[in-house]
């Protein structure tokens, strides 16, 4: 009912207004890079292209986003007291970043518990009206898991270092991670309330180690903006009462009054249906 009403009022204007450019989620021509430290128990220094970029980067820390020129960046993780990047803890790795994309580089444990790094591409495509995006990434030294939303399995059998994602109606969800086939949250991995919003990709990470004693599993969260179409027009008025047209004929006024009644009736329906 509501959309019909609005379309009726603005169809002509839309033809005239043309196409608005999309509002980009990252600066045009740039790449956004965030960095997540998901290796428990070790503070590191992060060198990018040989330069110390993150000093004393601690487990659970999230850095960025950095707005970078597209290209390939070489990243090295060293002990936090290292003098330079000549002795990385894991072999230095390259991050190929393309323009107009959003990435998160994650230093984490693989399924067997060995440190590694993964580059994830964050989905910043537009979400439908009324929906937000949820992404879940398994970067923990743990077996395959199910992702629970409001207590029920929403994604099943997710393995390190895979991700799953879905666009869901906006709102707050109880999220947790369970061993595959179980609906009992793994200690440290929820349940936690996450709020999905229009224009946002909420990214949840399960990180740490299930085999460490005690276990070091934890959740991390990050949000990135998704692309959003700018409004093509702003149509603020339907009655003509503020118009510069001058006086109108009585026949026109009667017609306007009739239309006003129709519009008022439509407004009442709108008010009811929105409740």
């Amino acid at each position: 009912m509501r959309s019909t009403l609005i379309v009726g009022a603005t169809a002509g204007a839309l033809l005239a207004a043309g196409v608005a450019a999309p509002a980009l989620a990252v600066a045009p021509g740039k790449a956004d890079l965030s960095v997540l430290h998901g290796i428990p128990g070790l503070t590191v220094d992060v060198y990018v292209n040989g330069a110390l970029t993150l000093d004393d980067f601690a487990p659970g820390d999230l850095a960025g986003p950095l707005s970078l020129d597209p290209g390939t960046y070489t990243v090295a993780l060293t002990a936090s007291d290292a003098a330079d990047d000549s002795a990385p803890l894991i072999p230095a790795f390259d991050l190929p970043l393309a323009a107009d994309m959003s990435y998160t580089a994650v230093a984490h444990l693989d399924a067997a518990g060995d440190p590694t790094a993964s580059l994830f591409t964050n989905d910043i495509s537009e979400t439908a009206s009324g929906e937000g995006r949820l992404t879940v990434r398994h970067v923990a030294a743990a077996p395959a898991v199910d992702i629970l939303a409001n207590g029920a399995a929403a994604f099943t059998n997710v393995e390190n270092p895979d991700e799953v994602k879905a666009d869901l109606p906006v709102g707050t969800y109880s999220a947790a991670v369970a061993l595959a086939g179980s609906t009992t949250p793994i200690p440290g991995l929820g349940p936690v309330d996450v709020t999905l919003a229009e224009g946002k990709n909420l990214i949840v990470y399960a990180w740490g180690s299930a085999t460490a004693d005690p276990a070091t599993l934890a959740l991390a969260v990050q949000t990135v903006d998704t692309a959003m179409e700018m409004p093509a027009a702003v149509e603020t008025g339907t009655q003509g009462l503020a118009a510069d047209n001058g006086s109108t004929s009585s026949a026109m006024l009667i017609a306007i009054a009739g239309l006003a009644l129709v519009a008022a009736g439509g407004g009442l329906v709108v008010a009811r249906s929105r409740r």
Binding site: T74, P88, P96, L97, S118, T121, P161, E163
Partner: peptide, 22 residues
């Protein structure tokens, strides 16, 4: 030893494009 390797791309999105080193 600082042997460089391309980090595995964990996302489904292809990372195949060759981009110049920065």
């Amino acid at each position: 030893a600082a042997t460089e390797q391309a980090v595995p791309s964990a996302s489904s999105s292809a990372m195949g494009a060759i981009v110049a080193p920065v």
